[in-house]
């Protein structure tokens, strides 16, 4: 699918490296965007593009936390609850997020909109509590600003 739909990007990515294999992670990001998550088809397509065995691509997907092997919500909300953030209230904040969304961390809302995850330090401890929504930072969150954000995204 990305081969046709995002041919330009695929080509640009492959051109960056002397070895096709290096393109596996950037291509997985593209595939994840197109297929929703790294499902079997996504993996097989990336394998074909990089001339790797699907086992090798699956293995890469499994190693890194930012590739999803299961279907996620439209928005993946990743809240840091590592020590520096936790010293600034991240645990209580995550608890608030869980209540707001009605799911526990690690789960997706029944309407398929939001997946809530906790993550390790994401290099923004000065602006804790901090989260990423589909890889975009949301700094210095409060329960109120979180609620507003979720409502806006709904």
């Amino acid at each position: 699918m990305i081969k046709e739909k995002r041919a330009n990007e695929v080509e640009k990515i492959l051109a960056k490296y002397p070895s096709k294999r290096s393109a596996v992670m950037p291509l997985l990001y593209l595939a994840q965007e197109e297929y929703g998550y790294c499902n079997d088809d996504a993996i097989r397509e990336v394998a074909e593009l990089t001339a790797l065995d699907p086992t090798e691509v699956k293995s890469v997907v499994g190693f890194y936390t930012m590739f999803f092997e299961e279907k996620t919500g439209t928005y993946v909300i990743e809240v840091c609850d590592d020590l520096p953030c936790a010293l600034r209230g991240a645990d209580e904040f995550v608890h608030h997020c869980e209540r707001k969304l009605g799911v526990r961390a690690g789960q997706t809302t029944p309407d398929g909109k939001f997946t809530l995850r906790t993550v390790m330090c994401i290099a923004a401890c000065d602006r804790a509590p901090v989260a990423q929504v589909n890889r975009e930072y949301r700094y210095s969150l409060t329960p109120e600003s979180f609620d507003k954000m979720v409502d806006d995204l709904k």
């Binding site: 645990d91 608890h95 690690g106 993550v119």
Partner: peptide, 16 residues
Amino acid sequence: EDQLIRDHAISVNGVE
């Protein structure tokens, strides 16, 4: 308790 339960749902890329 809350944190313990939550932490066991952290995994690399699925639900632990």
